[in-house]
Design a binder for these strands. Structure first.
Lengths: 197, 197
DNA sequence: CCCTTGTATGTACCGTCGTACGTACTAAAC
DNA sequence: GTTTAGTACGTACGACGGTACATACAAGGG
């Protein structure tokens, strides 16, 4: 008897990718089995076969970004050793070459948005955030890392809201410098307190 | 002939309010004429009568928040004179008594989210942001104001993503202190440059 | 060659929703 | 009291979308 070999391996992944493109283009609200099927060039039946529920499809699609996109922005941060390195990496991640495209930001924005109402997607977001904090832990105390994360998302959000105007690099740099350097010099908080804020 | 007096004045506003509650509870995606009608206790016909298109209803609802909610968070900022006042006001707006409820943040998040795809809602958001920058203009240079706005939204977003964990007040305070005070002392940017970043 | 089992697909059902529209109601004008 | 214009409402149509499901296909095992 057949051992379960798919006739078209990779089809599942193509569907996942098409779903992400669909989400970036039209938002989660604009995702339908039929739409994704058309975009991926597969029949409707394939959709429900690989992904019995639409919610599952979307969650899986989001989850797949974690392994696909994350390394690109994360690597420079992991390699940062001094606070100055961190600032450079953060500025780059906001407006520089390693920064996400508007489509990528749109995707991330969708994750954050859906996470507010869908526990499964909230878990995905939580995982992303945990990765981020863990990444910053060697160079920044947790409270600072939290602020940095919030700031980064704030700037990305800004880019999303003003797609046509370029974000001013020195402004971004100073904001991160302020967050990263000030607490280290002026305050006694610079311990790796492990409690989340 | 009749002058156009409504039989039930205030019905329009009740619909608008019900719409906002619906959005805060289920998101824009969960808003339907029928759902809002039920929630507001009006017949379906009333909905399409006052709001011929669903998009118009949502835009109007969002726009109504601008006059209803904005003053509450804005007043302390307008009254701020020194940078220290500004920091206090910002911390309060983030985690203090004047800070928005989770429902309010949800609502604001919806505005930002929809604005990414809907020009009319983008205009509403733009107006809100302009108000905010104008409000900060007397006490902060524009680049700093931009960073502060991004930071504030970042923290609100954080609260949304972690509804159960309280945001640590000193952490928030230090983040705003860093943004507000550092550029004023260390950098030559402290002119009211009018260009957006 | 046929049987079995997993893979794949097309269709159809059922619900929801936006919206159009004909009808009814109300109150001011004459 | 009649007319009339604006207000309010209920129904129904057409489109869309998730999902169930019966059917068809492919590939190993015997």
């Amino acid at each position: 008897m057949r051992r379960g070999k798919p006739n078209d391996p990779g089809r599942r992944d193509r569907i996942l990718l098409a779903t992400l493109e669909m989400i970036a283009a039209h938002g989660v609200a604009g995702v339908s089995y039929r739409g994704v099927a058309a975009h991926a060039g597969v029949p409707l039946g394939s959709m429900t076969y690989y992904f019995p529920s639409l919610e599952g499809l979307i969650v899986d699609a989001f989850d797949s970004t974690r392994t696909h996109l994350e390394p690109r922005y994360a690597t420079p941060l992991r390699e940062a050793r001094t606070p100055a390195d961190v600032v450079d990496a953060l500025v780059d991640a906001t407006v520089g070459v390693t920064s996400p495209t508007l489509d990528d930001i749109r995707l991330y924005a969708e994750v954050r948005h859906q996470a507010a109402r869908n526990p499964k997607i909230a878990a995905v977001l939580q995982a992303v955030e945990d990765d981020s904090l863990e990444m910053l832990a060697p160079v920044l105390p947790t409270p600072t890392a939290l602020a940095v994360n919030a700031m980064l998302w704030g700037w990305w959000s800004h880019r999303l809201a003003h797609p046509s105007t370029e974000l001013d690099e020195p402004t971004v740099r100073r904001s991160f410098e302020a967050l990263v350097t000030l607490p280290a010099s002026d305050h006694p908080f610079h311990t790796k307190a492990r409690q989340y804020a």
